[in-house]
Amino acid sequence: MTCVVRHLKPEDEAEWRRLWTAYLDFYETRVPEEVYRTTFARLLGDDPQDFSGLLAEVDGRLAGLAHYLFHRHGWKVENVCYLQDLYADPEVRGQGVGRALIEAVYAEADDAGAPAVYWLTQDFNMTARRLYDRIGTVTPFIKYARPA
């Protein structure tokens, strides 16, 4: 298997939609068409420090995505990097696609001078957590959200 990670391009929209829809399905959620259009446009924006997308090609076929952004942090002078979305097609899981995408985000953070990369996952996502435990450090923080 050959995995190549690259930046999202305008002509990737159909396959990006397929991958992101599968990601949203995994989390049992849906977003309106306006969110698809807006997110894709933001991912292609002129400022890579804003919101960016990476795709993983496996043997020439798009099989994974990562969305990440940089933001200010109250405890650091430099921006930090938030890996917001990460997805690999089920048929390529366990073959290094997720690792390649995360390592590509690490490289983007290094290039941007961001000293930290972080992400969230659900506690029951054991498949992903096996990878995350190898290439990241679990933190003691618990996420809270404003009630809907």
Rank of each mutant, 00 (worst) to 15 (best):
M1W: 04
V4Q: 09
V5I: 10
R6F: 11
R6C: 06
L8F: 12
E13T: 05
A14K: 14
A14C: 08
E15R: 15
E15C: 14
W16Q: 06
W16C: 06
R17K: 15
R18V: 14
T21P: 06
A22C: 12
L24I: 08
D25G: 10
D25N: 13
Y27K: 03
E28W: 12
R30F: 14
P32D: 15
E34S: 15
V35C: 06
V35D: 12
R37F: 13
T38N: 11
T38Q: 10
T39I: 06
A41M: 06
R42F: 01
D46R: 11
D47F: 01
D47N: 01
Q49Y: 12
Q49G: 15
S52H: 09
G53D: 12
G53E: 08
L55Y: 04
A56N: 00
D59Q: 11
G60C: 07
L62P: 07
L62C: 06
A63L: 08
A63I: 02
A63M: 14
G64F: 03
L65I: 15
L65M: 14
A66M: 02
L69H: 09
F70N: 01
F70P: 00
F70K: 00
H71M: 10
H71S: 13
R72L: 12
G74L: 11
W75E: 00
V77L: 08
E78K: 04
E78M: 03
E78P: 00
N79H: 13
N79T: 07
V80L: 02
C81W: 00
C81H: 00
C81S: 01
Y82E: 00
Q84N: 06
D85C: 01
L86I: 09
A88W: 03
P90G: 02
E91V: 11
V92F: 08
G96L: 04
G98L: 01
G98C: 02
L101W: 01
E103F: 13
A104P: 05
A104D: 04
A109I: 11
D111K: 15
D111Q: 15
D111G: 09
A112Y: 13
A114E: 06
A114G: 04
P115Y: 14
V117G: 07
V117T: 14
W119F: 10
W119T: 06
W119E: 00
W119S: 04
L120E: 09
L120A: 10
T121S: 12
T121Y: 07
Q122P: 00
Q122H: 07
D123F: 11
D123L: 12
F124G: 10
N125T: 11
N125F: 04
T127L: 13
A128W: 02
A128T: 11
A128K: 02
R129N: 11
L131I: 08
Y132F: 13
D133T: 04
I135A: 03
G136I: 02
T137F: 05
V138P: 02
V138W: 01
P140F: 06
P140Y: 06
P140Q: 08
P140H: 14
P140C: 04
F141C: 02
I142N: 02
K143R: 04
Y144L: 04
A145F: 07
A145M: 10
R146I: 08
R146K: 13
P147M: 04
A148V: 12
A148Y: 07
